[in-house]
C-alpha cells in the first residue's frame, strides 16, 4: 500500500493507494500543521482501508507541514502533488487552481500531466480560503453556507480592498448601508476570483481548468472563477484530498522506479 499525506495550514489529508494504482481510502481532518490532525487522518484512512501502518510500502508527505513531519519516506511539494493528483483524477487537465486555507496556487500542466509552470500568491490572505473565512464570520454564517447564501444574491457588491483586514471593514460598512448578506457573499467570491484570475493570467490558462482545495467545495466560488476566466472550471472530485492523492501517486511511482533500478 502507498501512503500520501498532505499537512496543510488548516487541515490534514491522507490517501492510500494499492499496488494496482487504485485509490483505496482518503481522509480529511480539519486540523492542520502543528496539531494532532495528521494522526487522526491516518487513523481514519487506515481504518477505512482495513490496514495497519506496517502495510505501507512507501510514503510521501507534502503540504505546509511536510518539512517538520519525519515519519514519511520522502517529502515533496504540494505543487507537484496537486499536479500528480489532478493528472490521476482528471486526465487531460491542463490548468489547476488550488485555493487552500493559507495560499492560492495556479499550476500549468503539459499534455502528459506534468507540471511545467506555476504561480503562488504572496504572503497575504487575499485570494485564499482565509479571506472567505473572515467574510463568513462577518456575515454570521458558516464557511460551508457561503455558497448557498451567495446564490440567493441579486447583484454583486464590489469589495475593492485587496487587503483582508480592510475588506472586513469595507464589508461591515456595506452591511451597515443596507446591502444584503447574499450580495456581499457574492462580492466576496468575485473578489477572490479576480485575485486568482490575475495569477492565472500570469501563468497562462488552458482548458481543462480544474479547481482543488477546500474552496472548491464552494459551488458559487467555482462559478465566479469560471466567469472571471471566461472558461469552464471543474471542481475536482474529493477536492480537499487531491494533494494527498497526488502524494500517494508519487509514493507509488517512486517505489516502482526504485524497484526497477
Amino acid at each position: 500500500m502507498f501512503l500520501g499525506i498532505d499537512i496543510g495550514s488548516s487541515s490534514s489529508k491522507v490517501a492510500l493507494m494499492n499496488d494496482k494504482k487504485e485509490l483505496v481510502a482518503t481522509a480529511v481532518v480539519n486540523k492542520g500543521t502543528g496539531t494532532d490532525g495528521v494522526h487522526s487522518a491516518l487513523e481514519q484512512a487506515f481504518l477505512k482501508a482495513g490496514i495497519t501502518k506496517e502495510d505501507v510500502q512507501f510514503s510521501v508527505v507534502t503540504g505546509y507541514g511536510r518539512v517538520t513531519y519525519k515519519d514519511a519516506d520522502k517529502q515533496i511539494t504540494e505543487l507537484t502533488c496537486h499536479a500528480k493528483g489532478v493528472a490521476y483524477l482528471i486526465p487531460g487537465a491542463r490548468t489547476i487552481v488550488d485555493i487552500g486555507g493559507q495560499d492560492a496556487k495556479v499550476i500549468k500542466l503539459n499534455e502528459k500531466g506534468e507540471m511545467i509552470n506555476f504561480g503562488m500568491n504572496e504572503k497575504c490572505a487575499a485570494g485564499t480560503g482565509r479571506f472567505l473565512e473572515v467574510m463568513a464570520r462577518v456575515l454570521g454564517c458558516g464557511l460551508g453556507d457561503l455558497s448557498d447564501l451567495a446564490q440567493k444574491s441579486d447583484k454583486t457588491v464590489s469589495i475593492s480592498s485587496v487587503c483582508t483586514v480592510f475588506a472586513e471593514s469595507e464589508v461591515i460598512s456595506q452591511l451597515a448601508t443596507g446591502e444584503t448578506p447574499a450580495n456581499v457573499a457574492r462580492g466576496a467570491h468575485v473578489s477572490v476570483s479576480k485575485r486568482v484570475a490575475g495569477m492565472c493570467n500570469r501563468v497562462g490558462v488552458e482548458p481543462t481548468v480544474v479547481m482543488t482545495g477546500g474552496v472548491a467545495l464552494n459551488a458559487d466560488m467555482v462559478r465566479c472563477l469560471s466567469n472571471e476566466l471566461s472558461s469552464p472550471v471543474t471542481a475536482a472530485p474529493n477536492c480537499q484530498a487531491v494533494g494527498a492523492i497526488g502524494a500517494s501517486v508519487a509514493a507509488y511511482e517512486t517505489f516502482m522506479a526504485r524497484r526497477e533500478q
Partner: peptide, 16 residues
C-alpha cells in the same frame, strides 16, 4: 524572515 513559501517555490521548481 520566513522562507517557507520561497522554499516551496524553489523545491517545486526543482521537482519539475
Amino acid at each position: 524572515d520566513s522562507f517557507e513559501q520561497i522554499r516551496t517555490r524553489i523545491q517545486a521548481f526543482a521537482e519539475q
